[in-house]
């Protein structure tokens, strides 16, 4: 039977006493693929930080079904958060993801090294293991960061705006990779993005967030014209094209009755 692994109840989230989001009720189910979508500055990353335990709620509760350590969150931060000044290779970045499992005063060992190589292989970058991270393309860097999260052998993969700054082809390839990891590995995936059109074609559950508005549930329940109109303050077209969901803002007919 499926169960929630993270639950937020009446949570107010923000910095200091200033709440960015209020009255948040949300369950993240084991094995789910959850998308968190909203405009820039809507509070998506704040919600993510609260779920990861990086931020305590101002009010309400954020709880996990198990200790966070046993849930093993593989967190993929925004690419820009990684400093490229240090001459680390792709494999060394991935190895850092494994360190929490190794523990202090211990070396990686053959099993750990194999797990790192395997993680790079899963994201299709095995042959780039010894290249410096800063010399890789944006798409490759993002894949390395996913491999870094996979090296932990996580139960929950958390991605913060993974397709930022990518071209269409790289964006599609990355989303296919994440979808594949979810389907094959049974990973719970939490994906934050402002790209509604991309996310709705992959996730099973959806959170629409924009400061004062917060909607969460199964994709088909949340993804309605009414909800999107309320979120974006404009009428939207919701349909399918070549088997893929498409959301478009409707043309404004100025002066029309």
């Amino acid at each position: 039977m499926r169960r929630p692994i993270i639950s937020l109840r009446g949570a107010a989230l923000g910095y200091g006493r200033r709440a960015v989001l209020r009255n948040v009720d949300l369950d993240v189910w084991d094995g789910d693929f959850l998308g968190i979508v909203g405009p820039n500055g809507a509070g998506k990353s704040t919600l993510l930080k609260a779920m990861l335990g990086l931020m305590a709620p101002i009010a309400g509760t954020v709880s996990c079904a198990e200790p966070r350590r046993s849930l093993r969150f593989g967190y993929v931060p925004q690419r820009e958060a990684i400093d490229t000044v240090f001459p680390v290779t792709a494999l060394e970045i991935v190895a850092m993801g494994r360190y929490p499992r190794v523990g202090p005063l211990r070396s990686m060992g053959a099993v750990g090294r194999a797990a790192c190589r395997d993680a790079l292989d899963k994201v299709g970058l095995a042959e780039h293991a010894d290249r410096r991270f800063r010399d890789l393309s944006g798409g490759q860097q993002q894949r390395v960061l996913i491999a870094r999260a996979l090296a932990l052998e996580p139960r929950v993969l958390v991605l913060d705006e993974p397709t930022n700054g990518m071209d269409l082809e790289s964006e599609h390839a990355l989303m296919e990779l994440v979808a594949g990891l979810h389907a094959r590995g049974g990973l719970t995936v939490i994906l934050v993005s402002h790209l509604l059109n991309v996310v709705v074609n992959y996730v099973r559950s959806l959170v629409l967030v924009d400061r004062e508005r917060f909607l969460a549930g199964p994709l088909d329940t949340v993804l309605t014209r009414e909800n999107l109109r309320a979120l974006y303050d404009t009428d939207v077209f919701l349909g399918t094209l070549d088997g893929r969901r498409v959301v478009l803002p409707c043309r404004q007919h100025h002066g029309a009755p």
């Binding site: 335990g53 993929v76 990684i82 993801g97 360190y99 202090p104």
Partner: peptide, 20 residues
Amino acid sequence: LFYKEFLLVSFNPDSARASG
């Protein structure tokens, strides 16, 4: 002795904290 731990928490503290 703690080079890898110092590197880990210096490189991206949020990822390190999230992974326990």
